[in-house]
Simulated scan of single mutants.
Amino acid sequence: MQKTLGSGAHAALVALITEKRKAAGLTQDDVAMALGEHQSFVARLESGQRRIDVIEYLTVAQVIGFDPAEALKQLISEAE
């Protein structure tokens, strides 16, 4: 299995999270505070320097306010 960090799929997931955050009118600092993390945590995630696991993805989606399943369906349909 190939490493996912830096892959096209990882870049698409990062772009989706960033887009959803901005559409919600939230800053990286807003999301970080809600997660109990530093702003640099969100910055590393959004710059693709950090992998996000499933549980983190679900938590980030909840904080930002989007449906994680629907967002993944959108990513899959765009990749096809």
Rank of each mutant, 00 (worst) to 15 (best):
A34D: 07
F41S: 03
G65Y: 07
E70G: 04
A43Q: 11
E80N: 06
R50L: 05
L58F: 14
R21P: 12
Q74D: 00
G25E: 10
I64S: 07
A61K: 11
E56W: 04
L45P: 10
R50D: 03
G25C: 10
S40H: 04
F66M: 05
T59A: 09
G25D: 08
L13H: 01
K73V: 00
I17P: 03
M33T: 15
A69T: 13
K73P: 00
K22V: 13
A24P: 14
E56G: 02
E46W: 11
T27D: 02
A71W: 00
A79T: 09
E37R: 10
T59R: 15
G6M: 11
L58E: 14
L75I: 04
S47P: 04
E80T: 07
L26H: 03
K73C: 00
V54P: 01
I76C: 02
V54G: 10
A9R: 11
G48D: 08
A34N: 10
M1T: 06
A9P: 01
G36I: 04
S40F: 00
E70P: 00
L16H: 01
L75S: 01
E19A: 15
K3S: 07
Q2E: 09
D53F: 09
I55W: 11
I76D: 05
E19Y: 05
E78A: 12
Q2F: 12
R50A: 03
M1D: 06
E80G: 06
T27F: 01
K20W: 05
M33V: 14
Q28C: 04
A43I: 00
E80M: 04
A9F: 09
D53R: 13
L58S: 12
V14A: 06
L58H: 14
Q39C: 01
A23K: 12
K20T: 02
